[in-house]
Amino acid sequence: MTPALQGLLTIAIGVSGCVGYFYLSNQFLDKVLFPPHGPNAGRNINRANMIRPWLFLFPALAALGLYLAYPVVETLRLSLTERVPGGGYKWVGLDNYSQMAAEPKFWEAMRNNMFWLIVVPAMSTAFGLLVAQLTDRIRWGNFAKSLIFMPMAISFVGASVIWKLVYDARPAEQDQIGILNALYIFFGGAEPQTWLTVPFWNSFFLMIVLVWIQTGFAMVILSAALRGIPEETIEAAILDGANPFQIFFKIKVPQIKTTILVVWTTITITVLKVFDIVFAMTNGQWETQVLANYMYDKLFRANDWGVGSASAMVIMLLVAPILVWNVRNARKEME
């Protein structure tokens, strides 16, 4: 059977299975288990209404529990154990963590991740805010925004290919085909640079790829927030003689502070998970390792599930403050 046919069949089975489950389980509840008539009609209706939400929720909860909640616990367990040759696991306490902490590659990944965490959210948010503000009042603003938003649709892998061409280097005597080197030579650079192999700075060339992708996201959200600012505050500032920069930094930015924070944290999470860009462009060579790629290396190249899981827990730990913050905000909003 061809995969395409298999795919169609899966859609059919999946969709009809879902609909069938919801329909039949509701029918069963109303017709068989607690029919809303007969001697206990009132009690039955109440009981049916208590159970029904869980019928609606069950498949989703099962998926959430199995694919997201259980792995957190299981990864924690794996990070504290070691595979015994021949099968089974042995409790090793924090050995995996101390082994990881002894590896220079891990600290290289941590150091790079810290730079990623500062540079990418900051630059994406700043560029996003800049574009949102600049395009707010010009007639072709929507067109400009849609072009800057476009990289959002491009895969990290596709973006890696796009930027590898930008960073391409040819020997000095040839014409440069990477635009960065062509500009570099044009503005008086002596030798063409292989940008991705220059230690320390090469990480920043990888970050640019993610900034390029994430700016559109920041722009869309911040642009909506800017439009939501009450006009009276700005009119009042103009009457008081504020100049455009004062209006922007002293009136507008403070009013969209929470949105900026939301954008910042959302991009932070994306950064912590970034894998494809590093994997495709340098694969962690030349001191560009990051946590997610380090973890992939450990899990699937070194086949070391203990240390791999330990590094995954480090990522989880870094995400945890944002998770708590989000949950608290969501609860506050619902009250």
Binding site: V72, T75, L78, G308
Partner: peptide, 10 residues
């Protein structure tokens, strides 16, 4: 926000 990295091995 749970990173899907955690889910790979389990």
């Amino acid at each position: 926000v749970v990173p899907l990295q955690l889910a790979l091995i389990p």
